[in-house]
């Protein structure tokens, strides 16, 4: 369950990052569509937080729980901060910020899996 959700978050965030890179190259600001895409990533990270904590409490394996939960909790904060910092920029670099934020989400989702599997 954690694997599926983490890979979904990774895939979605990567897709939005590629889209944002394209928009940065094309000198485009953050659009409504991109706002919804970032919101979808946020829902994914919230889901991963729930699934992750549930998985952690159910497992008998020795997982670094504090580390895992810190990653999951931080992950939830990245999309909103990305949006706040990116939307205020009225040039192409607004989408540049989205690229960095979504890239960060993708890498952190993989780190979650590394911590989860030990």
């Amino acid at each position: 369950m954690i694997d599926t959700t983490a890979y979904a978050v990774f895939g979605l965030a990567t897709a939005v990052a590629v889209w944002a890179a394209w928009k940065t190259i094309r000198h485009t600001r953050i659009s409504d569509g991109m706002f919804y895409a970032i919101s979808a990533v946020e829902i994914g990270t919230l889901l991963l937080l729930v699934v992750g904590i549930a998985g952690l409490s159910a497992t008998k394996r020795d997982v670094e729980g504090t580390l895992l939960v810190s990653y999951l909790a931080t992950l939830v904060l990245v999309p909103p901060i990305t949006l706040v910092w990116g939307v205020a920029e009225k040039s192409r670099w607004g989408t540049g910020v989205v690229l960095i934020g979504m890239w960060t989400v993708a890498i952190m989702a993989i780190r979650v899996l590394q911590v989860w599997h030990g």
Binding site: W85, E89, S91, G94, G96, V97, I100
Partner: peptide, 30 residues
């Protein structure tokens, strides 16, 4: 106007630079 150029380190491309530094501030200190 829509595209009034803003000056200062935190505007334009600087927006992205700040974002990258924020990621490293977080990951290194955490």
């Amino acid at each position: 106007p829509h595209h009034r150029p803003q000056h200062g380190l935190q505007h334009g491309f600087g927006r992205v630079v700040v974002a990258i530094y924020a990621v490293f501030a977080l990951s290194a200190s955490a």
